[in-house]
Each structure stands twice: as C-alpha cells, then as structure tokens.
Design a binder for these strands. Sequence first.
DNA 1: AACGTTCTAGAATATTCGTTG
DNA 2: GCAACGAATATTCTAGAACGT
Lengths: 132, 132, 132
Amino acid sequence: MGCALNPTKNSNMPAFLSKLWTLVEETHTNEFFTWSQNGQSFLVLDEQRFVKEILPKYFKHNNMASFVRQLNMYGFCKVLHIGSGIVKQERDGPVEFQHSYFKQGQDDLLENTKSKVSSSKPEENKILGLKA
Amino acid sequence: MGCALNPTKNSNMPAFLSKLWTLVEETHTNEFFTWSQNGQSFLVLDEQRFVKEILPKYFKHNNMASFVRQLNMYGFCKVLHIGSGIVKQERDGPVEFQHSYFKQGQDDLLENTKSKVSSSKPEENKILGLKA
Amino acid sequence: MGCALNPTKNSNMPAFLSKLWTLVEETHTNEFFTWSQNGQSFLVLDEQRFVKEILPKYFKHNNMASFVRQLNMYGFCKVLHIGSGIVKQERDGPVEFQHSYFKQGQDDLLENTKSKVSSSKPEENKILGLKA
DNA sequence: AACGTTCTAGAATATTCGTTG
DNA sequence: GCAACGAATATTCTAGAACGT
C-alpha cells in the first residue's frame, strides 16, 4: 500500500520532488536559490553556496552534478542562456531549470510527476503527470 | 498510569498492538518515545535508548529491526523526513511511523487492526479495522 | 596503517567491499569491529559505537540495517549464535558475518566478489569470485 | 493457528561515474 | 563543449520465509 509517507504533502511523492519543492519555497535562501521572476522555473544564483549550504542538508551528497542528474531523471531541463557573455560568461551565470509541472503556486501539478525510470511500464514513464 | 485508556487484555487484539499502545501512552518515556505533535503518528526520538531501555521490557528482543518488522506487518508506514541529508555526527533525526487507525485519543480504531499475514484470505489483510 | 594489504583503488572492486576490508583491517577500531579469532568472519562487538563512529565515516548513512542489506547483497551471511543467554542476554551478543571469500589474510579471494544484482546474467551472480 | 523473532531479499529511489549525441 | 542519459552501486523501506512458541 502507499507507505513511506512524506509529511509535506501526505502523498507518496518521491523524496526528491518534495525536497526540491521545499527548497525552492524556503524564503530564507531566496538570495541564492529561488523561483524565477515569472515562477516558471527556478534559479541557482550562487552555485557555491547552494552546494555547500543547501545540498547536504537535504541530500546525502554535496555535488551539483548529482543534483542535476536527479533533475534530469524527473524530466527537468536546463534553461539555456545564450549570448550572455563574449568570451565565455561574464561570471558564472545563474543555473536555471524548468519543468512543465513544476511552477510556483501550482503544487497540484507536481502531484503525479514521475521519474523516468520509476515504473515497470516504460511507456508511462517518459513524461509524467496526470493533471495535464 | 495516568488517565489514558489502555485497550489491553480485554480483547483479542494482538499483543503487539496493545503493547505499542501502552508504550506510546506511557508518560515517563515521552522524552524519547511519544506521540507526534498532532497525534497522527508516533516518534522514536532516541533510538539507542528506545532499543536498550524500552524494547526488552515489552518484547523478547532488543532489536530495532524486529520492532520495525512488526510495524510493517501491521501496516504501519514510516514517515519520511525532508531534511535527512548528510549524516551529522551530533544527532539523528527521529524515527516516525504512522497508521491510519493508530492515532492519539482514538483507541477505538485500533480494536480490529489485523496483521497482514494473520488470515488466510489475503484481500482481507491488506488493511484492517472495521470501525472505519 | 600497519602492514595489512589494502585492495583498494587499484581494481574495479565495488566500493562496499574495499571499504569493508579497510574497516576490518583498521587496528584502532579492533575494540568493537574486528576479525574473529580464526579470521573466518568478522565481528561487530559494539553495535552502537559501530553505527555512530564508523559507519558515517565510510558510508552515506549511519544505519545498521543499511549495512546489513549491503552485506546480504554481496552474499555475506550472519553467523548464528545459539544458546547465547538463558533468561535474556547477559549483554548483547556480538554481530558476526561471514563470506567464503572474505577471510583474514586472503585479500586475493575478495578480488572478484560480485554483488547479487550487479551483472546482467543472473546465474553468475548467485555467488561470486573467480579464484575459487 | 496465530503471533513473534530473525535473517534475507524485493523494489523503488538516490548517488556516482562515464558516455552519448 | 556540454546537456542529457545509461548503467552500476548505494540507501531506504517493506516483505518473504523459516522457525519457534
């Protein structure tokens, strides 16, 4: 049966998603991890602080690469910033990720987001979500 | 032992459930074994003390694993904690379990909770309880 | 670090096995984690200290259950201690595990020990090792 | 026969590392 | 170069199985 509940939303949502939601909703870290202005994506404004201060509190690692791997597993895509620098990038540009069912104020969309490898029926995994 | 009802010894309730109820109602162990704040689950706040001091008083063992096995047998589910990241040397997060018919103040729900393997008709075991 | 061979970093051995080997070879923790007298198995003499002091240094958790799960995955078996107490138990008996290719002084046996789920050919996984 | 205790395994998600396009 | 992915191992939670009372 639906066990291993997580307390945020009393559902069996994967831990990664509820953690990510909690993270981005946290107001005291908005300085370097927050929703984008229009709420359609989220931003890592200071990767160093994010990796050092946030990741180890919520996950069993402190590697940006592992965090990104999880994002990709759940269908998030990086938002590319083109032409944001001449040589390379002025400094490190912010890291931005987006998912069609992960938007500010719409935690209901998140409900049934699935991992790409979670279920045994592959065709149901490719994307995710029933509310669509 | 205080005023709390103690649904023991007067029914055909499995020993595990009445012991668990007694345990969590005990006020003098609330420091490390107690109801959660909203009474919807119970917490093991200090696993080491719980294992050494409480388990052997009620059961024929002092293994957390055996206790958890029984919880799962009766349909209890672990409550996941968002902030369970890299292990801190200092303190462990509490262990929390929940069951829809095991709630503070509602010992009547507990009455007919059944083990998942007790009956020979599997479909009747999945959950349990008639008062619902 | 003493004279014991340490079969790490120079092979494709899974991290769990090389860590386990390192652990049991460490002399300064022999007080509560060590080879058995005949070197055919290893002992956890103080589970609480082992869980708190050793596990988090080598793994991303501090749960005995997770450690045991890994041991079973690699084919280790618990060594049963019969008649280890009359009324209850004087103290806690030590936890002992054994594997036919994990023996003191024979790190060569360990070389090709495989997880039960690692390869895609199930029949080759059941046990393990090529040197036998 | 039901329940309790122990040891091992199943299944899902998480983390790492290396590859693909 | 680099975002996304495949695959192996690791961690977690729950269940199967054997045995005893």
